[in-house]
Simulated scan of single mutants.
Amino acid sequence: MNTKIVQSRSEVLLVGGGALSDDALALALSAAGTVVAADGGAARVLAAGRMPDAVYGDMDSLSEAVQARLAPGVLQRVAEQDSTDFDKCLRHIEAPLVLGLGFLGARLDHQLAAMTVLARRPDRRCVLVGENDVVCLCPSRIVLDLPMGERFSLWPMAEVRARSEGLRWPLEGLGFRPDGITGTSNAVIGPVRLEMAAPAMLLILPVAHLGALRAGLAAAPRWPAQAGGGGVRA
Rank of each mutant, 00 (worst) to 15 (best):
residue 221 P to K: 05
residue 23 D to A: 15
residue 175 G to M: 15
residue 209 H to A: 05
residue 77 R to L: 14
residue 111 Q to I: 08
residue 202 L to G: 10
residue 205 L to N: 00
residue 75 L to C: 11
residue 44 R to Y: 10
residue 13 L to S: 11
residue 59 M to K: 03
residue 100 G to S: 14
residue 61 S to M: 15
residue 215 A to F: 13
residue 14 L to E: 01
residue 195 E to A: 12
residue 209 H to V: 05
residue 6 V to W: 00
residue 149 G to S: 13
residue 230 G to I: 00
residue 119 A to G: 15
residue 174 L to A: 15
residue 161 R to H: 15
residue 29 L to A: 06
residue 23 D to C: 11
residue 68 A to D: 13
residue 212 A to L: 13
residue 108 L to H: 07
residue 88 K to C: 11
residue 160 V to Y: 02
residue 73 G to W: 12
residue 222 R to S: 14
residue 86 F to K: 04
residue 70 L to M: 05
residue 234 A to W: 09
residue 179 D to P: 01
residue 66 V to C: 11
residue 171 L to K: 04
residue 192 V to M: 02
residue 217 L to F: 07
residue 1 M to H: 14
residue 153 S to F: 09
residue 168 R to K: 12
residue 231 G to F: 06
residue 217 L to H: 06
residue 22 D to Q: 10
residue 205 L to R: 04
residue 53 D to T: 07
residue 218 A to S: 11
residue 182 T to L: 10
residue 94 E to W: 10
residue 163 R to Y: 07
residue 188 V to A: 06
residue 218 A to W: 12
residue 57 G to I: 04
residue 91 R to Q: 15
residue 123 D to A: 09
residue 28 A to Y: 13
residue 117 V to D: 02
residue 122 P to S: 01
residue 76 Q to R: 03
residue 118 L to E: 01
residue 122 P to C: 00
residue 217 L to R: 14
residue 113 A to S: 12
residue 229 G to Y: 06
residue 107 R to F: 09
residue 172 E to K: 15
residue 233 R to E: 08
residue 221 P to W: 04
residue 19 A to L: 12
residue 45 V to R: 04
residue 99 L to N: 00
residue 132 N to M: 08
residue 175 G to L: 15
residue 41 G to I: 11
residue 40 G to S: 12
residue 128 L to I: 01
residue 82 D to N: 14
residue 57 G to A: 09
residue 93 I to T: 07
residue 88 K to F: 03
residue 2 N to Y: 03
residue 134 V to Y: 06
residue 186 N to C: 12
residue 99 L to G: 02
residue 8 S to R: 11
residue 93 I to K: 00
residue 107 R to Q: 10
residue 34 T to L: 04
residue 188 V to Y: 09
residue 68 A to S: 13
residue 180 G to A: 14
residue 63 S to D: 13
residue 10 S to V: 12
residue 217 L to P: 12
residue 162 A to M: 13
residue 214 R to P: 06
residue 65 A to N: 08
residue 170 P to Y: 02
residue 204 I to Q: 03
residue 134 V to C: 10
residue 10 S to P: 06
residue 210 L to F: 09
residue 11 E to Y: 02
residue 198 A to V: 05
residue 212 A to N: 09
residue 156 P to M: 05
residue 182 T to K: 15
residue 89 C to K: 04
residue 119 A to Q: 11
residue 138 C to T: 06
residue 134 V to G: 01
residue 106 A to M: 08
residue 173 G to C: 10
residue 119 A to I: 05
residue 166 G to Y: 04
residue 59 M to Y: 11
residue 102 G to P: 13
residue 230 G to Y: 02
residue 185 S to T: 14
residue 3 T to P: 08
residue 202 L to F: 10
residue 75 L to W: 07
residue 192 V to E: 00
residue 170 P to H: 02
residue 212 A to G: 06
residue 3 T to C: 10
residue 108 L to M: 07
residue 115 M to F: 00
residue 98 V to S: 05
residue 103 F to V: 00
residue 86 F to D: 03
residue 180 G to V: 02
residue 4 K to I: 08
residue 38 A to L: 13
residue 134 V to T: 07
residue 50 R to Q: 13
residue 115 M to V: 03
residue 125 R to E: 03
residue 145 D to T: 15
residue 135 V to Y: 00
residue 15 V to C: 10
residue 48 A to P: 07
residue 162 A to E: 04
